[in-house]
Amino acid sequence: MKSAEKNLHYLINFDTLSKQGCVLGKINPASKIFVFLTFLIALVSINKYDILKTLLLSSFTFAMINMSRLKYSTFIKICVVLSPFILLFVVFNPILDKNIFAFYNYSINAGYISALTTLIKFINTTAISLLIITSTTVHEIAYGLYKLKIPGFMAIQIILMYRFIFLFLSDIINTTESIKSRGGYRGNIKWKDMKQIVSSFFARAIYRGEDVYYSMLSRGFNLQNLNADTRFKLKDFLFLFLSICYILLLRLF
């Protein structure tokens, strides 16, 4: 349990990384979000056995990381923190996916291939999420979503998720601490209790989300009057155009 807690603390600290001063941070948020979404769709839709294309498309993520302040060490650490979920999949996939796949003269269990592409896709998705967090402020995200004509209620959901995920993490830490302090980890925590703890936890998360939203509103937050530096400049067009061309080129051929 110790190390899981450390990992959560690590994620929370990550939130305080500075958001300014990199190339990516200077790109118009609407153009950034659009490009990243396109990339994710292109990536996720690749055939699960097409490892070459998956790798090629990853070069885009690599380029983006180099344009940002995201350090490789931070990135790898976060991937490790999130890895337990994906590792389970990677381990069990070859058992579930029993197709045989011919590779030159070798025949390989297709499960390994699809597990590998999934792993690469996961790493890319994580990287892109981190890039958005480290290069965009809440106000910029809100503005970007608004410009992309995402309906207001959805934009608010996304913004809340974006801010709220870190509060949620600290909530998990507090809850585990309080369970422990009541002797929960001495081996006598029952499955029934656990179910109740988890469900009350989610109920609380929803109420908290509402409170967070109200306190944002109380301090003048409003989707319609955001004051980000909003003009679309040449560099934003270039970024948009070049990225989309690159992504489509790799994806379609």
């Binding site: 709220f164 409170d211 306190s215």
Partner: peptide
């Protein structure tokens, strides 16, 4: 909301940045 500033009772939910 521009006129009335309110500090809510629960602090955690107001510290979202």
């Amino acid at each position: 909301r521009e006129t009335v500033g309110i500090v809510f009772q629960n602090t955690d939910n107001q510290l979202f940045m």
